[in-house]
Amino acid sequence: MSETRAGHTEAEALYHRPAGLTDVQMRYCPGCTHGTAHKLIAEVLEELDIIERTVAVATVGCSVYAYEYFNTDAVQAAHGRGPAVATGIKRASPETIVFTYQGDGDLAAIGLSEVIHSAQRGEKMTVMFINNAVFGMTRGQMAPTTLVGQKTTTTPLGRDPEMSGMPMMICEMLSTNPGVAYLARETMIDPKTVRSAKRSIRKAFQTQIDGAGFSLVELISTCPAWWHKTPLEAMQWVRDEMLVQYPLGVFVDYDG
């Protein structure tokens, strides 16, 4: 892509649509940070020059159409089985860069054992974990990551810890696992956090290129539709509520 839509050269671009994305319009709700996450991953794939040898594994959830948006090869896995499919791809073709793109309903609920065992085996793959505290695709039911007191369609009075337990902290849980080489939690609610999220995503893919082990980035995302908020209110809610429960940071880093 040497020349862009308006006839500008690549060198004049301060920002252009990343080559890792196709020209398909994403079907996410307005303001949903799924799109931001896709964009950051696509930018990293372009910058590391690995688009041609990457396989994306989309799973079930709002991200089910990810194979249409990423300009890479892609596989659609069964619900929660992304890390298992990715393991197969990586072992059959070790030169391939493979990443899964999973929501919290997929990774933390039905697919929890897959991700823990993949981390346990130290599979050389990257997991993008989108945590928005609800099952977005099926209209906002309680997920394992739903906050205490948060109202969802299945917890109309708010999540009760007596009844459904406390929110699941995936990063804290995996951080003690010896197979994990890179583990970080990021969000995408202002320019600073978006830049920081991109750095972590880049590091996660670099971990896989270096063959250091399993890497996972948890991205605290918004779900304006099922939180019943505007996109900006949802970002404020992440800042005020989600980040209290889910502190940001790098939990494991293999080279320091």
């Binding site: 671009a13 920002y15 252009h16 649509r17 994403m26 696509a42």
Partner: peptide
């Protein structure tokens, strides 16, 4: 570039 950075649909491009 804040607009392009934050746009969830990658609709915005900026050129010098």
């Amino acid at each position: 570039g804040h607009c392009a950075l934050m746009c969830p649909d990658a609709c915005i491009e900026i050129y010098r």
